[in-house]
């Protein structure tokens, strides 16, 4: 299969150049060049924010001919990212194994020390963005403000159902925060991915979600769901009329890291190659447009700066999980 992939990737690259529209790969100046297809692990299921983003990055790499070898995305959604983390941890060829991460990158190793995963050993390739969270409800609920939401959710008790993406996931953390801060008793139900959550809300199987904009946008544009509050520091350009939770007087914001990491044991040369590769992806028009359209925030960081960010995030999540009783 790799031969066919290579042939077609080569064919595509050749054709792109022939039409004079392609950009030749600029990675030639680096010592490391991939010698086989790159295993691109997605630590979430199909159709969610991480999946869409990973496949977009792969498409950009293919379209612009940035890599001489194809990047092959594989979904490993099992166990809130545990499956993916273990896969990277035991990768036989770390120089050709990379992964796009969510915040389960921080929480899952904390909750499951038995996995033997230390995230500080992963190679810091690049943080492509910080994704944002909003609170969504179906339009037929007739709720238009966050205050109304609190009132309604309070009166319905555990009849109010929040769909999310796994136990102790980002969505669960936000739900716990809402429950604890506003005295609510929202029931949390985990699904395979943000895409499925969006669908459950659109079909009114659940009463609310805390989807990323990229996941809820389709149903937002069709008018099925409405955002009530953003869990960001400032209002999002895409939703200028939606207040932040901070504006309501509650000092809480929460973001999702959208980063690419390399398997533990990746060589410095390979890390340099991928740093450069994803910097190029970041600079493309297609990526910048996606950032704007999907309300992504956060600067591009890599290397030690990214490791320092992981350290902060890990400590923050450790605090959150301890507070919710998920870990001791």
């Amino acid at each position: 299969m790799s031969l066919t992939k290579r042939t077609f990737a080569g064919l595509a690259a050749a054709a792109v150049m022939a039409f004079g529209m392609g950009q030749t790969a600029t990675a030639g100046s680096h010592a490391f060049e991939p010698s086989k297809p790159i295993d691109f692990v997605i630590m979430a299921g199909k159709g969610g924010g991480a999946d869409k983003m990973a496949r977009l990055m792969q498409s950009i790499i293919e379209q612009e001919g940035l890599s001489s070898r194809p990047v092959v995305p594989t979904n490993k959604p099992g166990g809130s990212g545990a499956e993916a983390l273990v896969h990277l941890n035991s990768a036989t060829d770390p120089d050709h194994t990379i992964m796009v991460t969510l915040n389960s990158f921080f929480t899952t190793p904390l909750r499951q020390p038995g996995l033997g995963v230390d995230i500080m050993t992963f190679a810091p390739i690049g943080r492509m963005a910080e994704d944002t969270f909003l609170l969504w409800v179906h339009k037929d609920e007739g709720i238009t403000s966050f205050d109304q939401f609190v009132e309604e959710a309070k009166s319905r008790g555990s009849g109010w159902v929040m769909g999310g993406t796994g136990k102790n996931s980002e969505d669960n953390i936000i739900t716990d925060h809402l429950n604890a801060t506003f005295g609510l008793d929202i029931k949390y139900i985990p699904y395979k991915g943000g895409g499925e959550v969006a669908k459950q809300l659109a079909g009114q199987q659940i009463t609310s979600s805390v989807n990323n904009p990229s996941e809820a946008l389709g149903f937002y544009e069709s008018g099925d769901v409405i955002p009530l509050v953003a869990f960001t520091d400032e209002r999002l350009a895409l939703f200028p009329d939606v207040p932040t939770l901070k504006e309501t007087g509650n000092d809480f914001s929460y973001f999702m890291q959208r980063a690419v990491v390399g398997a533990p044991g990746m060589s410095d040369e390979a890390l340099g190659y991928y740093n450069n590769l994803f910097q190029q992806v970041f600079e493309t028009d297609a990526w910048q447009e996606y950032r704007t359209k999907k309300a992504l925030l956060g600067a591009k960081i890599e290397g030690d700066e990214l490791r320092a960010y992981w350290e902060t995030q890990r400590n923050r999540h450790e605090g959150i999980l301890k507070a919710s009783g998920a870990i001791n």
Binding site: G78, G81, E83, K167, N168
Partner: peptide
Amino acid sequence: VGFDIISGEPRLLFFEVQG
């Protein structure tokens, strides 16, 4: 067999005892 989608716990993996 594998990781449980809902709780994230490993099942029938034969390595759950602290690695």
